Simulated assay, not measured.
Amino acid sequence: MTERIKEIHAESGGNYGSPRVHAVLKREGTRVGRKRVERLMREADIAGVSPRRKGFTRRDPKAALAPDLVERDFTASATNRLWATDLTVIPAGEGPLWLSAIRNAFSRRVVAWETSARADADLVLTTLEYALASREVEPGQLIHHADHGCQYTSIKLTTRLMQARIDAFMGFVGDSYDNALAENLW
């Protein structure tokens, strides 16, 4: 069991903690308790990146970098090959309104957008679902670029991206050059 946990953790680039490792094992049909996964990870000195720490978008220096799927080239050779997504807050009289949008790098047009009073995984997942419903996406041909925000690293979103056979790429954390290139699409 510990060896499989190590494999899952390594495949995540060192990001997955016990909840995500447990979710992967469960999805694979392995019957194991969440607390057992926590204990085995602790005993093997394996830890994920916690989104609750101050500066939650900082990368664990011991973790391997995820592969750079776009090589800092935020252009696309055809439609629905590269989507960039982000969240922004809009101040409103009744409280903050969060806007989630996905933009096609080829046409530079917004593919889908959604608003909510909460910046959570459901908001970005709903936006993705609208984008997939409105576009014909070839499985294995699309890269979904986001930052390391907890909404984009959620189990809900990453599972849906895997189901749709969409490659996820998260920009280099704290790299203002990478962020500027991606945000240039906006």
Rank of each mutant, 00 (worst) to 15 (best):
F169L: 12
A101W: 04
F74V: 10
S50E: 00
G17Q: 03
S77D: 15
I143C: 05
Y177R: 07
R135K: 13
K54S: 02
T30Q: 12
V49Q: 02
S107A: 14
E183F: 12
N104T: 09
W113V: 03
W113K: 10
G48D: 01
R42K: 15
R135G: 07
L65F: 03
P91F: 11
R42N: 08
Y130C: 14
S116V: 00
L142Y: 09
T75K: 14
L25H: 06
I8H: 06
E7C: 12
N184F: 11
W83L: 12
I143N: 05
V49Y: 01
L87E: 06
F56P: 09
R42A: 13
E114R: 12
G95T: 09
R20A: 04
T30W: 11
V21E: 00
A92G: 12
K62H: 06
R4G: 09
S176H: 12
A92Y: 08
I102R: 03
S50P: 01
K54T: 01
K62Q: 07
C150Y: 01
F56N: 05
L82Y: 10
L69W: 01
E114N: 05
A10Y: 08
L40D: 04
M170D: 04
E183R: 10
E183H: 09
D167W: 11
A146W: 00
S18Q: 00
A64N: 03
R108D: 14
R4V: 13
L161C: 12
H22D: 05
R36N: 06
S12W: 00
Y152H: 09
D147M: 02
N104P: 08
A182F: 04
G174L: 07
A47Y: 03
S116C: 00
G13V: 08
R108M: 14
P67N: 07
R59F: 02
W113A: 11
D45G: 08
P19W: 02
Q141L: 00
H9A: 04
P96I: 06
T75F: 09
D45E: 15
R27E: 15
H145T: 09
M170F: 10
R81F: 07
M1A: 10
L99S: 11
G171F: 02
S107Q: 14
D175F: 08
V89N: 13
W98V: 06
I143E: 06
K35R: 10
T2Y: 07
A117D: 07
A168S: 15
A164P: 15
A117W: 02
N104D: 15
Y177D: 03
T159R: 14
K35Y: 07
A131R: 09
K54L: 00
N80F: 03
G48Y: 01
T158R: 13
V124L: 01
P61Y: 02
D167H: 15
L99Q: 07
T127P: 13
L99A: 10
R58Q: 04
D120Y: 03
L161H: 12
D68P: 03
A23T: 08
G93H: 15
F106D: 05
G13M: 05
P67Y: 03
F172I: 11
K6M: 12
T79F: 05
I166L: 09
V21C: 04
Q141F: 02
P51Y: 02
G95K: 11
T30E: 13
K54R: 14
D147R: 02
R165W: 06
V110S: 07
R4F: 11
D45V: 08
L181V: 10
V32P: 00
D45I: 02
